[in-house]
Amino acid sequence: MDNNQLNNHRIILLRYALLQLHDEAVAEDAVQETLLAALQTGDSFRSESALRTWLIGILKHKIADHYRAAERHYSLGEPTSEDKDDPNAALEQLIFDGKGRWIGAPGAWNNPDHALEQDEFWGVFEWCQKNLSEPHARAFMLREMVGLETEEICLDMAISHSACRVYLHRARLGLRECLEQRWFTTKRTS
């Protein structure tokens, strides 16, 4: 394992740390310590994805250390209950009828890229994200913001592959619905 190989994973690790720590400097430190620890062991890995899983494992410990030091309540990687206990299972029933047809069919969004330039839009996006149930929001963030693969998300959240698929689907349904209602409805043209 060399520096270059580790650097490839740095960005992902940093985004992961930021998601948990909400402080850039602290996140940088945790990632730096993780990479150093990794360099010192000199283990070899059969694939880049095995290496990343291992790095994230170390990073989780560093993050937990940080919270322990700060004496704040913290839990990470707790097994999440599977679909039957999913608080947002009802979401799909609001969006699709019993025959799998749209109830709240997606409307046309007028010039969505324009929204990216408006500060107000980011506030709405944040609100919508907070409005998702916690495991859905987390799966979505790990996938789309951190950039993890679904297998890595399953491991991280200790959920099955099918639960992961359901969470991501529901997160997208929920976010889409929320953005449409809170942002695009007033701007809809058809």
Binding site: A105, P106, G107, A108, W109, P112, E144, R172, L175, R176, L179, E180
Partner: peptide
């Protein structure tokens, strides 16, 4: 539309 919109998300 759903396809385009989740791409946007």
């Amino acid at each position: 539309r759903f396809q385009q919109q989740i791409g946007f998300l």
